[in-house]
């Protein structure tokens, strides 16, 4: 029942089950080689799954490609634009493939490429190339857009402009599925996040669900505090660790309460420790991601 894609010696997608709701932004997160692009490319109709079923807008991407192509916008991870073709000309070409396209000149302005409209794709910067590919994905006013690492190589300005564009598309009723390595991006944009690793779904939910309500108390102090001693002053099931040196993190099962904060500061006062940069925050998506997928580098 679940999706499988096997290459000669490796299983890229291994029993993945995942639903993205219409009208929402769904982000696929995962380390390099986790199977994000393979999954997306199966949905785009580029690859055939070796097992399982895929439905895109209720259709089979392999069998119903002709019906799906006008309705689905695609941004590949890299390339796809003829190197010698100017940015403006490429968008005009793609606009001619669609029945009700966006105006290519306005869209070019929207993604900040008006000044390089006559510049061949190969002479655009990496971020500009990404913006052109993004514009190409949305020019046909698709119902569903697949964006494979849309903001890779973009400067912060372009990244924020891209986020605005994605939000506006969502508000207009489009469905967006993206992959990203930027946790902040997933956190800000997504209705649903799916973390995949080794071709399997590791976790899924809204960013708030994934980050959990428990929260953390963090502070800085001299290195080598007696965290075991500190723990004995806290409720059962609490966690206290020093990571990295001089940075302390405290997690408790029931969430950080005013009493807990008082217990920690009382313990510090007793031991003559002045905690600085003390703050209470929820876990970030990045914390959750690293917890689920580990810290070791991927090949």
């Amino acid at each position: 029942m679940s999706l499988v894609k096997q290459y000669r010696h490796t299983v890229a997608v291994d029993g993945l089950t995942l639903t993205a709701a219409r009208g929402e932004v769904t982000s696929l997160l995962g380390p390099n080689g986790a199977g994000k692009t393979t999954t997306i490319e199966i949905c785009e109709g580029y690859r055939q799954a070796d097992g399982g079923t895929v439905q895109v807008l209720g259709l089979d991407p392999a069998r119903d490609a002709r019906a799906l192509r006008p309705r689905v916008g695609v941004m590949l991870q890299a390339g796809g634009v003829p190197p010698a073709v100017p940015a403006g000309e490429y968008l005009r070409l793609l606009s001619r493939f669609h029945a009700h396209p966006l105006d290519p000149t306005e869209l070019l302005a929207r993604v900040g490429l008006t000044a390089v409209a006559r510049t061949p794709y190969k002479r655009l910067s990496g971020g500009q190339q990404q913006r052109l590919s993004l514009a190409a994905a949305v020019i046909g006013r698709p119902e569903l857009v697949f964006l494979d690492e849309p903001t890779a190589g973009m400067d912060p300005q372009a990244r924020h402009a891209t986020w605005d564009l994605i939000r506006e598309m969502r508000a207009s009723g489009a469905t967006i599925i993206l992959t990203t390595h930027f946790m902040e991006e997933a956190e800000r944009l997504s209705d649903q996040v799916a973390i995949i690793d080794h071709g399997q779904l590791v976790a899924a939910g809204t960013p708030a669900e994934l980050c959990g309500g428990a929260g953390q108390l963090r502070f800085r102090a001299e290195t080598g505090l007696d965290t075991d001693g500190l723990l004995s002053a806290l409720p059962d099931g609490s966690l206290a660790k020093e990571s990295p040196a001089g940075h302390y993190i405290i997690e408790v099962p029931d969430g950080i309460s005013p009493q807990l904060l008082a217990s920690v500061t009382a313990w510090c006062a007793e031991h003559g420790v002045l905690p600085t940069s003390l703050r209470i925050e929820s876990r970030t998506l990045e914390d959750v991601f690293l917890e689920l997928t580990g810290r070791e580098l991927r090949p």
Partner: peptide, 14 residues
């Protein structure tokens, strides 16, 4: 199952 994309068939969000 639905491997990705597509919340079945309903019209776009009202």
């Amino acid at each position: 199952m639905t491997a990705a994309a597509a919340g079945v068939d309903g019209a776009p969000t009202a």
